[in-house]
């Protein structure tokens, strides 16, 4: 099993954080993982993206030409990464601010009003985690239990009050 995942959005939307959660979830499940942030001018220019590879076997090439799935949190990223999903793959889009009119017939675009759902939880900055919840169905290497462990590992110890709300957002996105 292997998941190659692309994650993108504005800086500050928590793209790197989702990547980290996925990476931890993979690692804590004993899988091979690799997290590649964008860095440099790209990072400072407003749009952030990272990629995550989770695999049962050693990860040789960490370069993702075509991803199995991904999350895009803003319009720019939707347009950039729509062509980068493999046929049959899934792209979760934050439909609160992303217009998904541009389509591909061979992939599954999941439009989630993540902004509104996050607002409903009282914290607009959780749109990233809502999208993560919506992505779970498309993943072969990470499930809800894995995300719970990862959120605990990453934020649980430092900010216990954020643990519950983050997981609530993931569940919301997963429709649970």
């Amino acid at each position: 099993m292997m998941d190659k995942i692309l994650l993108a959005g504005f800086g500050g939307q928590g793209v790197m954080f989702v990547g980290k959660i996925l990476t931890y979830a993979g690692m804590l499940a004993g899988r091979e993982v690799c997290w590649i942030p964008s860095y440099g001018p790209e990072m400072r220019g407003g749009t952030a993206n990272c990629s995550v590879v989770i695999s049962d076997e050693e990860i040789h090439s960490p370069v993702i030409e075509y991803a199995d799935c991904g999350i895009v949190l803003n319009q720019q990223s939707y347009e950039k990464f729509l062509p980068r999903i493999k046929p049959g793959g899934t792209l979760v889009a934050n439909s609160s601010i992303v217009d998904t009119a541009q389509k591909r017939d061979d992939i599954n675009v999941v439009a989630v009003p993540a902004g509104e759902l996050a607002n409903g939880l009282g914290n607009a900055s959780l749109a990233n985690m809502v999208c993560l919840g919506a992505l779970l169905a498309a993943l072969t290497t990470v499930d809800m239990a894995g995300v719970e462990k990862a959120v605990d590992a990453v934020v649980g110890k430092k900010k216990p009050e954020l643990y519950e709300i983050n997981l609530a957002a993931v569940r919301k996105g997963a429709g649970k």
């Binding site: 990476t23 690692m27 091979e32 690799c34 997290w35 590649i36 942030p37 860095y39 440099g40 960490p62």
Partner: peptide
Amino acid sequence: DGFLGQMMEP
């Protein structure tokens, strides 16, 4: 290289 330096792995 920058890729190796920035990449996060266990």
